[in-house]
Structure formats: structure tokens, C-alpha cells
């Protein structure tokens, strides 16, 4: 079975305008960086991969994750994690409840609490369970958001400009953290960005859209 995330002749168009035409395989722990100006179809590609493409687009081609064709799999069964630019922590839940929402079901209550505590300390936020997400700093939110995604045990990770809201110092720190934690878990990553510095920092393959 092929491990990794494969985009097989993915072609997305709107009317007669082709936004995306792409074929490639991202190996476990590998990164594909998709670049391009706004409106070039970067987010459309991500929507296609997560299965949330808006009506009005026409898409052909296959998305294959660890050998499984995702064509008819609903978003919530695809096991593709997604990180947005804004953290999108659920404002009515505490930090711990946000992580519990992400954590796959199963395990006893203490086991689940322990996994959440371990996830928080992995990113230097031990003891933050009962905090209101609105009271966290930008970097703290980004780290909680990352761990929430990872606790759902995704098989691939999509990154939609996740670093562009952060100031430069924090930016490289969070970028390195995301990269390391995802690589440690052997996740194929697809990074969408308009910033060449991001692309240089993560290495790997690079594609330009709308060029």
C-alpha cells in the first residue's frame, strides 16, 4: 500500500477558467508547498481535498490518502487535518474542552484527560485546560489549535497560511514546531502560503498556482 497523500491529475475549474492542474505525491513526513497570489485557487485546492468545495466549481481527478481514494468519503471521515490562519478555537469551550473535541473517542475519562494534559505540555502549555481561549496570546492559540488537530489523529495535514497572522519572531518558532510535530508523526503536509520565506523554511517540493 502506498503511504502518503497523492493528488492524481487534480483539475479544478470554474466555467472555462482552470484554477488548479496538479499531480504529485507527498510522502509521509514530506511537505508540498503551494504558492500563488490571492485568488489563484490555493484555498480552492484545500477545499477540494477536504471535501468542502463550494458549488460552482468543477473538479476532476483523485485524492488518495494511504492508498484510499477519498472521492466519496465525507469530510469528517477523511482524516485530513486542517490548520487555518486564524486559530478558530471554539469560543464557548475551554482550552481543555477544545482539545477533547478533537481527541478521537474512546478511552476512559482519566486516560483522555491524561492525553490532553500530555498534548498541552508537549507545546509548553501544561495546566492550561480550564483557560478561556479568548484570553490566550496569538502564539498560544496557534499551539492549542495545532494540538487539537493532532489529537484527532489525522493521516495528513493541510496548512492554510497558518503562520501569516503571527509576528515574525513567533512565526519561525511556530513553523518549526508544526513541522517537527508533524514529521515526528510521519504526516504528509500540504502548505499553502504566499510567503517565500515559509516555503524556504519547510523545504520540500514547491508548486506555483496562477502563474
Amino acid at each position: 500500500m502506498d503511504r502518503g497523500l497523492t493528488l492524481d491529475q487534480v483539475r479544478i475549474s470554474r466555467g472555462s477558467w482552470t484554477l488548479v492542474d496538479l499531480s504529485c505525491t507527498i510522502p509521509p513526513g514530506g511537505v508540498l508547498t503551494v504558492m500563488g497570489p490571492s485568488g489563484s485557487g490555493k484555498s480552492t485546492l484545500l477545499a477540494f481535498i477536504t471535501g468542502t468545495l463550494a458549488p460552482g466549481f468543477r473538479a476532476t481527478g483523485r485524492v488518495i490518502l494511504n492508498g484510499q481514494d477519498l472521492a466519496h468519503v465525507p469530510t469528517d471521515r477523511r482524516r485530513i487535518g486542517l490548520l487555518f490562519q486564524d486559530d478558530l478555537l471554539f469560543p464557548h469551550l475551554s482550552v481543555g474542552q477544545n482539545l477533547a473535541f478533537g481527541l478521537r473517542p474512546g478511552g476512559s475519562k482519566p486516560e483522555r484527560a491524561a492525553r490532553i494534559a500530555a498534548a498541552l505540555s508537549e507545546v509548553g502549555l501544561a495546566g492550561f485546560e480550564s483557560r478561556d481561549p479568548a484570553t490566550l496570546s496569538g502564539g498560544q492559540k496557534a499551539r492549542v489549535s495545532l494540538m487539537r488537530t493532532l489529537l484527532s489523529e489525522p493521516c495528513a495535514l493541510l496548512l492554510d497560511e497558518p503562520f501569516s497572522g503571527l509576528d515574525p519572531a513567533l512565526r519561525s518558532q511556530i513553523r518549526a514546531l508544526v513541522l517537527q510535530t508533524a514529521q515526528r508523526r510521519g504526516l504528509p503536509m500540504l502548505l499553502v502560503t504566499h510567503d517565500p520565506e515559509d516555503a524556504d523554511a519547510v523545504g520540500g517540493l514547491r508548486v506555483m498556482l496562477g502563474a
Binding site: T50, T52, T75, G81, L88
Partner: peptide, 9 residues
Amino acid sequence: TVAATLGAS
């Protein structure tokens, strides 16, 4: 969308 990628129905 985020919640769906986390596996929520």
C-alpha cells in the same frame, strides 16, 4: 470545516 476535519459529524 475545522470541526469536520477533526472528525465531527
